[in-house]
């Protein structure tokens, strides 16, 4: 249905953040802005196992046209892409840093995201670190926490709807191509 069509309700389901925290770290306009401006996504903690959530997300994002760069100390290749041990080792511009690591590791990942000049840092469901989030925001990065990139992209692009899920998108305007 195309990113950017119509008004959206903020979705408060399935998050442990308070409404105030949701306004800071789950703002739908901010999420749409990140998804539409991003070209390259570094996925920290991307697994090479086919049935892991991170692998689902990476496969989906590649199909949706994003460049995905795996970050994992184990190295090798995942989905045909070279795996880098950390963000600093990536030899190209990264727009979004997507985190699949425990909350305690987020702070060090944010430090590197700031260092490489990423536009945004995004932590997946139940990965929450407010100190790290505020550090990123203070350095001018956009921050999303306790959300899934695949679910949010699917929500705004219309494909999550095919699975019968509640996108909370309400609009009488014709979707954009």
């Amino acid at each position: 249905m195309g990113l950017g069509s119509g008004a959206s309700c903020s979705i408060s389901l399935n998050t442990v953040l308070t409404p105030e925290q949701q306004a800071l770290y789950q703002d739908p306009d901010c999420i749409r802005d990140i998804l539409s401006r991003t070209k390259t996504i570094a996925i920290v903690g991307l697994s090479s196992e086919r049935q892991k959530a991170s692998y689902f997300v990476a496969t989906y994002l590649i199909r949706e046209g994003y460049r995905v760069i795996p970050v994992n100390p184990r190295g090798g290749t995942i989905l045909g892409e070279t795996v880098y041990p950390d963000l600093k080792s990536i030899p190209e511009k990264v727009d979004l840093v997507d985190v699949f690591r425990p909350s305690a590791e987020v702070s060090a990942i944010v430090d590197q995201a700031i260092e490489i000049g990423a536009m945004a840092v995004w932590t997946q469901l139940r990965i929450i670190n407010f100190e790290a989030a505020e550090k990123a925001r203070a350095s001018g990065l956009l921050v999303v926490m306790d959300k899934c990139v695949k679910m949010e992209h699917g929500r705004f692009s219309g494909s999550l709807h095919w699975a019968g899920m509640n996108t909370e998108l309400i609009s009488a305007r014709r979707a954009k191509r």
Binding site: M1, I170, R173
Partner: peptide
């Protein structure tokens, strides 16, 4: 959005 608005609009955005 309210309940009645959802009855009429939720789940359907006119296709492109």
């Amino acid at each position: 959005f309210g309940f009645e608005t959802r009855m009429l609009h939720a789940g359907h955005i006119p296709d492109p």
